[in-house]
Design a protein around this nucleic acid. Structure first.
Lengths: 205, 205, 205, 205
DNA sequence: GATGAATGAGCGTTCATTCAT
DNA sequence: AATGAATGAACGCTCATTCAT
């Protein structure tokens, strides 16, 4: 990568960082492009060299963050697709969710930002675009490979994932950020039982 | 109610209707107070006699709509709190959800508007404020009375409701509005099985 | 007219005056709406209550000025439509042109502003809109009445007027503002001869 | 001419062509230097190596186009300055105008562009600058040579040319582009009669 | 000479809010 | 209570111009 390209990457990164901070601090609506540029230490016009507008930036930011979270969680769990029998499928899913929830607990800003904006649709079609990094694996693909490796059959794996996704997403926001109606540690057992129920109820025996 | 009070009620209603229409048509951000006043056929200044600002109106609109939906659904299902044994508790919940989902299917605007904004927190603390009408029953209270009447015991009824709420809310948005990843009719069986699973897993036997 | 309407009229007038001055001083391109509002002593936002944008104002200004000039000139010449035989048709036209040229000489700003923008098309279709004042007569109509009253016949009165119009308009700009290639007094005889030639060449004998 | 000079000429030409196209398509005001550079396939910075700004380019473009039109028309008419008696002076002028009008009819973009911007002053002082090509003759000079060759005397040849110029310029714009108030073919006879009238009225007998 | 990333002043426009009527 | 003209801060965005490469 040339020196100039590196500098461009830096600027883009700076805008990302600044925007993420401001979106979380003041909310997206109260954050002006001026604010972002100022915080990123670039001129206002520079913003427009990288993003169409505030919402373009937001979308790219979400895609980038969400992909990264999923990739990192999957990696951290250390699933071995070749020996998934040791590791029952449900356990793998629950573990990934657990890792993600813990991370969200540590980084509530990330949660606040992601949950408000990420949905199944966005996720499903998320073209990881130019945010792809070497260690990014496409989560959705990985999920299907996990199912194949598990040797089990499900009537509608997409629906199954979707329901887990929405359940986890919906619950975690309230619980982690407001501790309402219960704390995260209180939620987990119930949540994981339900995840297992969802998996079980979709299995074809 | 005096003539004047009636006229005021009308203005307020007109503002509600106009706002609901515009929020759904152009989105809340692109809707100005000017737009709302214009569509409601009142002067701009009049808006401020009824609402603090656009978001005040939105919040009151949500509370009003959500309460009304829940109340109407509960009523339509015709639960007899004195004979809930005839009517197993899970069936009551599922029925209510079913009625709501069907209504949302018919009124996607309502869904779009509500889901984007309503969450457990909002719901739980929803001060029904001045929107209460004689036939509005507080859903949350009703829920607890249903549990009492069922004669069964649950470890954390609030958490149980919360999980059902988030699951249904999260899934319905995507499914009804985008038919992704499945159609509403395909979702229902899985969803209802999971709701029953949630109820069962919270029961103390 | 109510007091409020009067105030509105004043504001509009102030914007007109300010814009006319600035357009002539700095040119239309270099004049910002901010400038106009500032000079008119109104807030920037007020501008938009009266005009769509700078060019809307310009168009209305042109229509207003042009109509007024033509009306005033026609009036000043004191043509008696009932006794146009005393006053040969050519003489009437030349007299009107003469009055206008003299006025333009006195008010070069007006010339600068009008000539750059006014053309046959604009003139012909000039809906005098809301600029109409009691003493404004539609020049175009008046022209046709003059022809009728003259008792003479022309093959294409519109073309005749058009040619005179373009000739006078084109020549006057350069001559009055730059005194190139001749002075106004040197131009007049040639110009009037040509106007008479144009009239003569269109007459059906 | 060296290879490098040729390349430079090409760039300049490309900028001219791009600008002419864009000025006609979107209007001069809506055309940015960025647009021009992009369409000409050169970098934005390169623009400044050839022109001071947008208006510098425009002026040079006008000069170039106008000169070329006049030169080409004069050439096409094939006036023989040594035998102008065969070819009465009026006929020469009318012929040149005729050739130009026909060309404008075929290339309305050219007309739109030229007329809006060219006037006697611009023309008279048009320093043909670096646009001169071997076959370009200075029209203004040529005009005076034509008069000399005709053996006739005029009181003010410059004024005469000026009036013809403004008359033709003013009329052609409306007529060719809008066909108002008459078509080009309907205009021509009247226009040519008036041109001859102008010439005659300036002749010293 | 050519490039195009970066700049930042400046523009048009919107709009919540006020207040005299 | 109702109005809607007036305000002016604030915003998104453009773009001519510069300059390091």
């Amino acid at each position: 990568m040339s020196k100039l390209d590196e500098k461009k990457k830096k600027k883009r990164e700076a805008l990302f960082t600044a925007a993420f901070h401001l979106f979380n601090t003041k909310g997206i609506r109260q954050t002006s492009i001026s604010d972002i540029a100022h915080e990123a230490d670039v001129a206002k016009g520079t913003f427009y060299l990288y993003f169409k507008d505030k919402f373009d930036l937001r979308d790219k930011l979400i895609a980038s963050k969400a992909t990264q979270i999923l990739a990192q969680a999957t990696k951290e769990v250390g699933i071995d697709l070749d020996h998934l029998d040791i590791f029952p499928f449900e356990d793998a899913i629950v573990k990934i969710v657990d890792v993600i929830l813990d991370r969200m607990k540590r980084e509530p800003d990330l949660l606040r930002f992601i949950t408000k904006n990420l949905s199944w649709g966005a996720f499903h079609h998320m073209s990881i675009e130019d945010e792809t990094t070497p260690d990014t694996i496409e989560f959705y693909e990985g999920y299907h490979r996990m199912i194949d490796a598990s040797g089990r059959r499900f009537d509608n794996p997409d629906l199954m994932l979707f329901m887990i996704f929405e359940l986890v997403g919906g619950c975690s926001y309230q619980v982690i950020l407001k501790e309402k109606p219960v704390s995260l540690e209180e939620l987990k057992p119930s949540l994981y039982v339900t995840i297992r129920d969802i998996v079980r109820s979709h299995e074809i025996v």
